[in-house]
């Protein structure tokens, strides 16, 4: 299970601007918590949602702590977010890398909860699992993702 989820969880953390070493620590903490959780005989329902919830909470906490220091990754994210331009010029639109940058910039400019929904979905979680992980309703998750995908599609089509 660790091998299966380490990369998805680490990607999740890092994509919120947490540096890789901090993200790695978060993933360790997630699995130690899971170990305790199971040993205490707690619910085994929606374990995927559960590990993402722990990772999500630790990630936001870590990001908040890091924000107090000038963190390069956060600045990068801000700069990228400013680059969000729904109408790129035609030459740029042809380039794959440009397109990727544009998509990422759109995502980084989304509210946290929308980013979370989208990233968890991108890691293959079901809507129900995402709802459990973020403590929001199934309807909110599908609305959030529909809204974000709409923005991405519009940005993509220019």
């Amino acid at each position: 299970m660790f091998d299966q989820y380490r990369d998805p969880l680490l990607r999740y953390s890092v994509s919120f601007g947490v540096p890789v070493p901090d993200g790695e620590e978060i993933v360790q903490e997630v699995f130690l918590s899971l170990f305790r959780h199971l040993q205490l005989g707690r619910s085994r329902q929606n374990l995927r949602g559960w590990i993402f919830r722990v990772a999500h909470n630790l990630t936001l906490k870590q990001r908040y702590a890091n924000k107090r220091l000038p963190a390069a990754t956060q600045e990068d994210a801000d700069i990228a977010a400013q680059r969000t331009d729904p109408r790129p010029n035609p030459e740029d639109a042809c380039s794959d890398a440009q397109r990727q940058q544009r998509l990422l910039a759109v995502v980084r400019a989304l509210p946290d909860v929308d980013q979370s929904c989208l990233r968890m979905r991108a890691e293959g979680l079901h809507y129900r699992e995402i709802a459990g992980a973020l403590g929001i309703s199934l309807g909110s998750v599908s609305m959030s993702i529909a809204r974000s995908l709409g923005k991405l599609i519009r940005a993509d089509q220019g």
Partner: peptide, 25 residues
Amino acid sequence: SILIDLAQTERSSLDAELPPVAGAR
């Protein structure tokens, strides 16, 4: 399609940074 592209984009931009899993395990 956009969701898949996004997932692949995230992966291609981040995966190179991720250290091998063995050490973490």
